[in-house]
């Protein structure tokens, strides 16, 4: 049996941050950060997809948790969301990869 009662020897998922040593000495940026238009629109689209039962908030979270750890910490909050929303809609077949690539090309 492990004697490490701070749980750090266990395979925690990267979003599961309670008590994690790596961040214990990191200062908290307590300043207000205004949301951008991008942030607000991603948030709104997520809400609409939830209200229309296209995808749940739990599916969003699962999608965020599936982002590789290095990227997770490099992406902003709503950048993670747009990634997770897109991945979820692709996986569920709401949109296809071909449609997405075409839409990105058309930009």
């Amino acid at each position: 049996m492990s004697i490490d009662t701070t749980h750090e020897s266990q395979p925690r998922a990267m979003h599961d941050l309670g008590g994690v040593s790596r961040f214990l000495c990191e200062e908290v940026d307590t300043e207000p950060h205004a949301l951008t238009d991008f942030d607000r629109e991603v948030d709104a689209i997520r809400q609409i997809l939830g209200m229309k039962k296209v995808m749940s908030v739990d599916e969003l979270r699962r999608g965020i948790e599936a982002i590789p750890e290095a990227e997770y910490h490099a992406l902003s909050y709503y950048q993670r969301w747009i990634r997770a929303i897109t991945a979820t809609l692709l996986r569920k077949g709401v949109i296809t990869e071909g449609e997405l690539l075409a839409a990105l090309e058309a930009g």
Binding site: F38, E41, V42, I45, L49, L75, S76, Y78, Q79, I82, R83, I85, T86, L89, I95, E99, L100, A103, L104, A106, G107
Partner: peptide, 12 residues
């Protein structure tokens, strides 16, 4: 991310 949002919004 902005490109992704524009593409996704268009598809939806």
């Amino acid at each position: 991310s902005d490109r992704l949002l524009v593409a996704l919004r268009g598809l939806l």
